[in-house]
Simulated scan of single mutants.
Amino acid sequence: MRAQVPAPLRWLPLAAKPRETETVPRQPITVLGECVADAFVQPQRSSPGELTLKVHAGGGPANTAVGLARLGTPTRFLGRLSEDTFGRLFRTHLTASGVDLAHSVNAPEPSTLAVAELSPDGHAAYSFHAEGTADWQWHPAELAAVPLSGTACVHTGSLALVREPGGPAVEEFLARAAGNATVSIDPNVRPLLVDPARYRERLARWCELADLLRLSADDLALLLPGVSPEAACDRWHRAGVRLVVVTLGEHGALASLDGTRITVPAVPVEVVDTVGAGDAFTAGLLHHLGERGLLGGRLDSLTAPDVSAACAYAARVAALTCAAKGANPPWARQLTV
């Protein structure tokens, strides 16, 4: 366990000035996890007795990989991609965004399908069709063959980390990566597919492996019901995580670096939907840290002003994603407008 002793509690506003850094080569990031076919209900195009769906490539880890690559981070995605129609959609979407699929697996199982219906405020409710699908079938040999030299960070989470039979193989891969790379985890709790109790059982082990834990307020409510974000951060620091970031939707985000709190307001935006916003925040956070050469180890050189600047950037990335339909994170050029 890489336990950290929390520093004396301090609060920093967003305005904390980041330290000056020299330009460094962009640090490669590996993302491991699922790619899901998100089928959105189109009520305005449906006829009586029929239902029209529009399918997008989705899945939390895949969304994060797309976000990172579009921002300019060299990104490799490790997924078990089916040979079916949806699998072909995933490959086209990922490669068009600049994601490297050289070490993804061509899987014989079918793709996972999620049917999504949007509420008037843009939040999605999902039903999943995921039994026997490709994403969770990782074998230790498939991941043992993946080279880790040159990877500054490994990001994973969501269903591939918690579902059987692949979850233990993914944990073993993270343990191997932790020797040299920063480990980032987003639990992305999906109670319709996995009992939250299962996440709670595994969370202590994930905290031993992770340097960065990013989760939403909804995740927090399922993992630690009734526990405040601040108390949760302290608990996870004691378990071994140096940086915890809890995204709070329209209320921004709370970050905690060894007990030093950083609050980040949300960026005002006209919301189309919130699909993929948390994944886009994670992409922005990791991209900003990597661009400043802060990934590649236990985050030992990370400071609170670094975290403040990275979270502010991530909030802009998430806001632009909320302004577009579906999980459609922005390209780097859009951040300059």
Rank of each mutant, 00 (worst) to 15 (best):
R214G: 08
L78F: 07
H123I: 14
G132M: 06
P225M: 05
T52Q: 15
P168T: 10
P305W: 08
A309V: 00
A124G: 12
G87K: 04
N328R: 07
L32Y: 07
L174F: 14
P18Q: 04
P8L: 04
G98E: 13
A134H: 09
E171H: 14
R10P: 01
L223S: 10
V227T: 14
S119L: 15
L222F: 10
Q42R: 14
A3V: 13
L94P: 03
G87L: 03
T156P: 06
A309T: 01
A124P: 12
P168Y: 11
L32P: 08
L286R: 01
E172V: 11
N328E: 05
G252E: 04
V55R: 08
A197G: 13
A231F: 01
V272G: 02
T182R: 09
P18L: 02
S47P: 01
V31S: 05
V241K: 03
P110Q: 11
L161V: 14
S149P: 01
Q4C: 05
P268W: 02
L294W: 02
I262H: 00
L203M: 15
E208Y: 06
R26V: 06
Q27I: 01
G166I: 10
I185K: 03
L209Y: 11
T112H: 11
V267W: 04
E270I: 01
V264G: 00
P6I: 08
Y199S: 09
R176A: 11
A69C: 05
A277P: 11
M1N: 02
H139F: 06
A253R: 03
V5D: 09
A217S: 15
A197L: 13
A114P: 14
L302Y: 07
P330A: 11
W331Y: 13
Q44Y: 00
P225Q: 07
V241Y: 03
G226D: 13
V264C: 13
L213D: 03
A319T: 13
L243G: 06
S228A: 11
P43N: 07
N180C: 05
N188P: 11
C322Q: 02
V146R: 06
L161T: 13
A124H: 14
P329E: 03
L294C: 05
D195C: 09
E250F: 00
P25H: 03
P147N: 03
V264T: 15
D234M: 08
A327Y: 03
L148Y: 09
D258V: 00
H237T: 14
L113T: 13
I262Y: 00
G296M: 04
D195Q: 09
N188Q: 10
E250Y: 00
L148N: 08
G290D: 02
A3L: 10
